[in-house]
Computed example of a mutant assay.
Amino acid sequence: MKKPNFYSSQGFDRLDRYRDDPAWLESILSSENSRLLPVWRNQHLVTRQHRPVSFPANRDGGLLALSGELILLGSDPEGVIWLALDISHLEQPEKMLPGREAQSFRDLRIVGPLIDRHSGALLAHARAMTYWHRHHRFCGDCGSPTESTRAGHMRICGNPACQRAHHPRTDPAVIMLIHDGDYCLLGRQPSWPPGMHSTLAGFVEPGESLEDAVAREVSEEAGIRVTDIRYHSSQPWPFPSSIMLGFYARAASTDIQVYGVELESAGWFHRDQLLNSPENEQFHLPRRDSISWRLIETWMHSEQRD
């Protein structure tokens, strides 16, 4: 690949070696080289120009006083250390943050395609981690409250008789473009924006290989058998906590059967039709920050026909 997929954190050091060092963690909160990213109920603070807003940790002690969940994200190639601060417990967070230009909390699903790749990777990482924390406040074994540790990368059950360690999870999902000569298979779900068509996708089930999941999902959703399954690339997809594993596969059958459970429709679309997509409410391709778009775009411009 010439470039990584959107939301991929290429060149980002997650600083695992410092997660168990309280003295180091305390020192970065007074460092000139560390910044805080506030997260509120899965939303990020951005300007009207869709630029993410962050705060220097050493000058915004008031932000840390808000008693949010603090999570070490890591350092970027320039050496800036980034931390996420989850302030979801606040009802009106904008009023308690340092005053800047017009800014508001927005969902990454909306602003993701409008921001640069570096910012997108940071916000995706922060969103995924804060989501995990909010949904693992109690132990799955005994039901006792859990406590954050390892700079936000582990939660420990507070019950002395249990003390189960819980680690951040990501759900593997396959996403695949099925092709047959100059045609590819696209479908649409009823919950999608009007006209949107995309590649098929689904979660990997226990005891299943990735290739098995590709074949099963295509068969279940569209009644198509596939062969020549080939891996393309992956993408972190924090909506809410997936890793999308991208594949190509060749159709071994072409008679579509949609059962109406996950898809409302599916069809074979010619390469030229997609290259000249009207991009309107009658027909348009997926959002440009998604791996589904990457798979379609690569195939559209490929000379391969089978």
Results as ranks from 00 to 15, higher is better:
1 M>K: 03
2 K>Q: 14
2 K>L: 15
4 P>F: 03
6 F>Y: 08
7 Y>E: 11
7 Y>D: 10
9 S>F: 03
10 Q>K: 11
14 R>S: 11
14 R>T: 14
20 D>G: 08
22 P>N: 02
25 L>Y: 09
28 I>W: 01
29 L>I: 12
32 E>R: 15
33 N>D: 12
34 S>Q: 02
37 L>M: 05
43 Q>L: 09
43 Q>Y: 00
47 T>P: 00
53 V>Q: 05
54 S>P: 01
57 A>E: 05
63 L>T: 01
63 L>V: 05
65 A>D: 13
68 G>D: 08
72 L>K: 01
76 D>N: 09
78 E>H: 13
93 P>V: 05
96 M>N: 03
97 L>Y: 01
98 P>L: 08
103 Q>R: 11
107 D>E: 04
109 R>Y: 09
111 V>L: 04
120 G>Q: 05
123 L>H: 02
123 L>C: 08
129 M>K: 03
141 D>V: 15
142 C>E: 04
144 S>E: 08
152 G>N: 06
152 G>F: 02
153 H>W: 15
154 M>L: 11
154 M>H: 00
163 Q>T: 11
165 A>Q: 02
167 H>G: 00
173 A>P: 00
177 L>Y: 03
182 D>H: 06
187 G>E: 02
193 P>G: 07
196 M>L: 13
198 S>P: 00
200 L>S: 11
201 A>L: 14
203 F>P: 14
214 V>F: 02
216 R>C: 07
218 V>P: 01
220 E>A: 13
222 A>M: 08
223 G>V: 12
224 I>Y: 02
231 Y>A: 11
231 Y>W: 13
232 H>Q: 15
232 H>A: 15
234 S>W: 06
235 Q>W: 06
238 P>T: 07
240 P>G: 05
245 L>E: 02
246 G>H: 01
247 F>A: 08
247 F>C: 06
249 A>E: 03
255 D>F: 04
256 I>M: 04
257 Q>P: 00
257 Q>A: 15
257 Q>I: 15
260 G>H: 02
270 H>Y: 01
279 E>I: 12
281 E>R: 11
293 W>T: 10
296 I>H: 00
306 D>A: 14
